[in-house]
């Protein structure tokens, strides 16, 4: 029987500073560990524990995996002290990711905030790598301040140039600074004038809890059916295999029934925005 608790060794190949509190770790797993975009893994720092993260790299790249991680707890603080050449463990992949095959021929609206940019980068890359399958991508991303924008170079520049006819990226910050010429306001302030055929569209929302709530409400207001809105639910996943009880949302084990769940599945569940 496969030992579901055994982490695979992975070497840190590179550490990239993204924002003052967020770094991307490029790791090389020593055994095959593929994933679908939106699935998550438990990353081990031996002696400190495991924490769940969704890879931020393309699922089509097998030999290395990126994790973009905010320093916020004991495992992530230690990760932020780690450097190239050191080892971590990875266990997974776990749960259900984004159903890309079901989105063929559709226009895709992505609403993201803060470190929610991490899973969304994996999704965005996966979409771009098969761009012919989709009609359009509109990515609305909000950060607290310009300094907090994750993947600045990609979001503010490179991704804008991939295919301007099919891909539009809008950014906003809650608080601007002297250098910021873009929109100021929460992310929902740029989720308007979509130019999207809602009847042939799916929405994706990923970010901190308050943004998830108002991002989802915005999509509902635009006329998205509940079943077309894909949420990335965040909980305290521990075992990752649907047994330990930490990540329950109603009867769902978010680690297995999610983390990507459509709004119709969860809208009547208790305390979904908490």
């Amino acid at each position: 029987m496969k030992n579901v608790y055994r982490p695979i060794d992975a070497e840190i190949l590179e550490v990239i500073d993204e924002t003052p509190t967020i770094k991307t770790f490029v790791v090389e797993p020593k055994e095959d560990i593929g994933f679908a975009t939106g699935q998550f893994m438990e990353v081990t720092v031996p002696g400190l524990g495991e924490a769940p993260f969704t890879p931020s790299s393309s699922p089509n790249v097998k030999e290395k995996i990126d994790f973009t991680i905010m320093s916020v707890g004991k495992v992530t603080e230690e990760l932020h002290r780690m450097t190239k050449g050191q080892m971590v463990g990875v266990r997974g992949p776990m749960g259900k990711g984004y159903p890309l095959d079901a989105w063929k021929g559709k226009e895709i609206l992505i609403v993201g905030g803060g470190v929610g940019a991490a899973p969304l980068r994996s999704l965005f890359l996966a979409l771009v790598e098969r761009l012919d399958d989709f009609k359009k991508i509109l990515y609305c991303y909000g950060a607290r301040t310009p300094a907090d924008i994750v993947y600045k170079e990609l979001i503010l520049d490179k991704w804008q140039k991939i295919n301007p006819k099919k891909i539009e990226i809008r950014t906003t910050v809650d608080e601007g600074d002297a250098s910021w010429k873009g929109n100021v306001g929460v992310v929902t302030t740029v989720v308007k004038d979509l130019g999207i055929d809602i009847s042939n569209s799916v929405g994706v929302v990923c970010g901190p809890p308050i943004m998830m709530k108002f991002g989802t409400f915005a999509l509902v207001e635009h006329g998205y059916p509940d079943s077309a809105i894909h949420l990335s639910m965040e909980k305290n996943m521990s075992c990752g295999i649907g047994k330990c009880g930490h990540c329950m949302l109603g009867e769902y084990m978010v680690c297995q029934d999610g983390p990507v769940m459509t709004y119709d599945k969860v809208k009547d569940k208790p305390a979904i925005w908490d």
Binding site: Y5, G47, L48, G49, S238, K243, C244, H246
Partner: peptide, 19 residues
């Protein structure tokens, strides 16, 4: 009741991951 946690013994240079 079967809920559990997975944690590493803290403060040790050599230790165990416990359920």
């Amino acid at each position: 009741c079967h809920c559990f946690d997975v944690i590493d013994e803290s403060g040790l240079s050599r230790g165990r991951r416990l359920r």
